[in-house]
Amino acid sequence: MSDSTAIAHGAAAGTHHEHPPYLRHHFESVDQQTDASNFAMWLFLLTEVMFFGGLFTVYMIYRNWYYPAFSAASHQLDVMLGGINTVILITSSFTMALAVWCAETRKKSGLVAMLVVTFLLGVVFLGIKGHEYKEKWDKHHFPGASYSVQAFVNPASDPLQVNAQGKPLAPLAPDMAARTEMYFCLYFAMTGMHALHMLIGMGILIFMIFRARAGAYTEGHSAYVNYFGLYWHFVDIVWLFLFPLLYLINRH
């Protein structure tokens, strides 16, 4: 009901109301356009939720089946690096929120600066992520033919396989140790999918930085910055779940 009265109001006002250039022809008012696009962006994010939901389902099942393997393999990840990355991503989300605020209050230089900072934080995040991937690759923890279970059948040989008190973890039986590969499959699939989303986001960020320098978002139509902000925050949220689920299994 409220929607339809809003439209009627827009149509009635339409006669003496000059249309801003960014109002698409099939909308009656800017409000309707912003409402619709904002809603569409949310629906798109919900499809993303379901997409990651499938991956989290897989994670849930195998973590329950192979808990010892998941717990042991999780120790191969560096909580320090993961924590730093989490902070970086949260910060980039904060700067993105500030970018939205700058666009809404028409601060052009502030907007450009915030977008650049967001982009750079994204670069740092992916850099650290790449460094972590390389570590796994070098230790033959990338799933595939050359996968090595050495660290899990013989934890004493690996300085990372220690508990919070610095004592080596108990070795896994060979069949359970082989299941650590499943953990790394999921680790690479989930963080890889997350990194892919960040790459796409950073591509859009570059585009937006150029548009923002030309003043595109600070002349009344800040909606695009807002939509992109929603996407960026969503990617941040996915990481907020990935971090404890992948890095912090049984650390005590």
Binding site: D3, T5, I7, A8, A11, H26, Q32, D35, A36
Partner: peptide, 10 residues
Amino acid sequence: IVTIHKMRAP
């Protein structure tokens, strides 16, 4: 979904 929610005529 967006159309049905946001584009209905008066």
